[in-house]
Design a protein around this nucleic acid. Structure first.
Lengths: 164, 164
DNA sequence: ATCATACGTTCTTTTTTGGAACGTGCAACG
DNA sequence: CGTTGCACGTTCCAAAAAAGAACGTATGAT
């Protein structure tokens, strides 16, 4: 399987990975959620090659995650902003941040704190079941083919044996 | 910034991306959560090069996400299983799946359905605030430096301007 | 004129990946 | 005993992607 075939897999992980599954793309998105919008600022903060940055921004625009907005004419200048679709990646980024906070923070503690404006408190993101509201654990979920499944892809037999 | 410098950044996204921020690694983890454990099965399902698969499994073991377990002696054979740390990546994978389900599913619908054993219902993962339990939206979160922050990294000034 | 700014592109070198074959240890078959 | 098959990799070479630095372009400020 190559990059260009990934988005044709009948698997939501594969299709999403085709969009964001790249170290630079994820870091670009992190910066987007922190308010970065301009080419030069991404480049300076990330230390990414200009060539690769141009490529990743182009791909994110094509995927509908970012949009290019002119903020000045004469000379014409653009900036990159998250679309609504892009904002929907927030849970992915928060889940990544939380894993890092819990498992990879140095002894000084986590680098960034998050405050929920609605309740005013510092918080951690928690992934819960949409139906009962209880926190989700891998072992408490059973998975089976949906309408978009294709035979022999993504899930094959009983796929419950990961426990242990 | 190169791969090998990523994990030294004072940023939970960068550190997590240093572990999982790679297309193949994410697909390997997907398969782990679907019950795949053996080299040959990863290779057959993913179509990944054996060389790259060996490399990714080695890195995941080194990162403490997977562990190598002997399931047979004479000949000695190993399989790869998620550790507790690895199981903590479940919210990341579920967030990725959900984004794919919502934004990238074909017209036939989502490829996979998830049932919560605790309540018995088909569900979607929802990311909520640990303090008030309300669903999180990017615009409702304010971010500021924590104890592990380093000057000039990850967040610089007011970082609330991503809206719009 | 010269410099600075913002947003890229071009060029060359280094690193990573794809693809196929080979190596190892052992068991089962004929 | 020789052969086949399996599980788990490693090795080798060609192709693709990334790093690093310089160049291009349009404009406005000094």
């Amino acid at each position: 399987m190559r990059w260009r075939e990934l988005d044709r897999e009948a698997c939501s992980v594969a299709r999403t990975v085709a969009v964001i599954g790249d170290r630079w793309t994820l870091l670009v998105l992190r910066d987007c959620f922190l308010g970065v919008r301009r080419f030069e600022e991404f480049q300076a903060r990330l230390g990414i090659t200009r060539h690769v940055l141009a490529d990743r921004l182009r791909k994110l625009v094509k995927a509908g995650v970012l949009r290019k907005v002119a903020y000045e004419r004469r000379p014409l200048r653009h900036e990159y902003r998250l679309t609504d679709k892009g904002l929907d990646l927030y849970p992915v980024l928060m889940a990544i941040v939380h894993f890092g906070d819990v498992h990879l923070a140095g002894r000084r503690g986590r680098p960034l704190l998050h405050r929920h404006k609605a309740c005013g408190k510092l918080f951690d993101p928690v992934t819960v079941c949409s139906e009962c509201g209880e926190p989700l654990h891998a072992r408490a979920v059973h998975v089976h083919p949906g309408p978009g499944a294709r035979r022999g892809e993504c899930i094959e037999g009983g796929a419950d044996g990961w426990t242990g």
